[in-house]
Design a protein around this nucleic acid. Structure first.
Length: 422
DNA sequence: TCTGGGGTCCTAGGACCC
DNA sequence: TCTGGGGTCCTAGGACCC
């Protein structure tokens, strides 16, 4: 019996947002462009390969990108197009096999073991995918093929831009050993430095290091996982549907002293976004977490777990407001009052609203969204309110008008690109 | 003149329960 | 007299990914 072939594919669109802009506007082709941000502020969401050559990367502040690449062209994103074209590419993948795991707007794993009898060996399938995406959608896509997800993902990174790398069974060690540890999923800047402190820079060096030593430096879970990855042991299967375990929304703010009405208005808007998504999928969550970022990029989080799941805008807002002030009050003192630069709300411990609970639901629909799905049962609201009062005192919960406030400069279409299925 | 927005998973200490 | 041990949940922070 022969070893299993390289039947896992990782398909990853190249510089996706930037490539779409170059597709839409031929004048941008061959030029260094950045989507999002600007020379005076904001963040670069994606850079074309012409810009990457200057060191421009996604996530980089616009002013730094402009300094690295003086000819950099900043373009505003066409977020609706990203969604449409990303979906179109997924459609091409779905023609090959139903076993597709979409990781993000522009990236997916495929298990083609059941498709080879129709379409030939994995390498031919990968080549065909690249050809079809190029011809039918107009975008460059890189594909890695290997025996495991981890290896396929590394292969696609090595293949970029616009390439195909197949790691044949038996060739894994030769392929992996010289590559930098930073290509391993789970090795970011911090762990890369920690490994470098041990003299470990390549995957081969990591594989030759005893797992116990790696775990000592990186912690049990991370160390164990990385050692396994370095040894090419990756048991993960391609999963076609995965439900989110948390839902959140956040907004960067211009640096400001926190004022009660202001904080409430922002949190009400974020809570409305989050709770609407929950209700739309008939879901609810018990744990509310608020994140506050302060001037200087320090962050704090506060969370509260309620006795029962909730999905009501007002309940979430009230909890979020109390948690936010708990973090803000702890961060500042009279001598140095704090300034905030971001507020975020997220809900975890998510469960389906049971059918029984929906039927017993007696409270009126969310007053801020006429016609929307009902919130939680009245008794559940009361229990939640009780939990808030227990923690914050009797007058913690009040009903103030929710002033819907448009968030920062980020359009909703952009936010939706990153949302996971609930 | 600073650094978006959506997520996942892990750790460590304390509360609490049996 | 001096106090077990295991398990689970909650909270806060952190690393990482796209």
């Amino acid at each position: 019996m022969s070893a299993p072939g390289p039947t896992i594919l990782h398909a990853d669109l190249d510089a996706f947002y930037a490539s779409v802009e170059q597709l839409l506007d031929p004048d941008l082709r061959g030029r260094p462009i950045a989507v999002g941000g600007g020379p005076r502020g904001g963040v670069v969401l994606a850079a074309s390969y012409e810009a990457k050559r200057f060191g421009v990367q996604g996530g980089m502040p616009g002013w730094r990108a402009a300094r690295l690449c003086p000819d950099l062209l900043f373009v505003r994103g066409h977020f609706g197009e990203y969604q449409r074209l990303g979906d179109a590419v997924m459609g091409v993948l779905a023609d090959v096999t139903p076993v597709v795991e979409r990781i993000s707007i522009d990236e997916a794993f495929l298990d083609v073991s059941g498709a080879t009898h129709l379409f030939g060996p994995p390498a031919a399938i990968a080549a065909r995918i690249r050809e079809r995406v190029r011809d039918e959608v107009g975008l460059p896509i890189s594909v890695g093929a290997a025996r495991t997800k981890h290896l396929a993902k590394i292969a696609s990174q090595v293949a970029k831009p616009d390439g195909l790398v197949v790691v044949d069974p038996g060739a894994e060690r030769t392929f992996l050993d010289p590559l930098p540890v930073s290509l391993i999923w789970g090795v970011g800047p911090v762990n890369e430095q920690r490994l470098a402190d041990l003299g470990i820079r390549t995957i081969g060096e990591l594989a030759r290091t005893p797992s116990s030593a790696v775990e000592h430096i990186l912690g049990h879970a991370v160390g164990h996982k990385l050692s396994a990855m370095a040894h090419d042991e990756d048991p993960r299967r391609v999963v076609t549907s995965r439900r989110a375990r948390s839902v959140g929304a956040q907004s960067a703010l211009s640096r400001r002293r926190p004022e009660p009405d202001d904080v409430r208005a922002v949190l009400a808007h974020l809570s409305d976004r989050v709770s609407r998504r929950l209700r739309a999928k008939g879901r609810a969550g018990r744990t509310v977490t608020v994140a506050v970022r302060f001037a200087g990029m320090t962050r704090a989080t506060r969370s509260l777990t309620l006795p029962v799941p909730m999905s009501a805008t007002l309940t979430l807002t009230e909890v979020a407001v109390r948690l936010a002030w708990s973090a803000i009050d702890d961060a500042g003192d009279d001598a140095a009052p704090c300034e905030i630069t971001l507020l975020g709300v997220s809900v975890s411990n998510i469960a389906d609203q049971s059918a029984v609970q929906m039927e017993l639901d007696l409270d009126p629909p969310d007053p801020w969204r006429p016609g929307s799905a009902p919130g939680v049962a009245r008794g559940a609201v009361d229990e939640s309110m009780d939990a808030i009062r227990t923690r914050f005192g009797g007058d913690a919960v009040g009903y103030l008008p929710v002033v819907l406030r448009r968030g920062g400069a980020v359009p909703d279409e952009f936010r939706e690109l990153a949302e996971h299925d609930l």
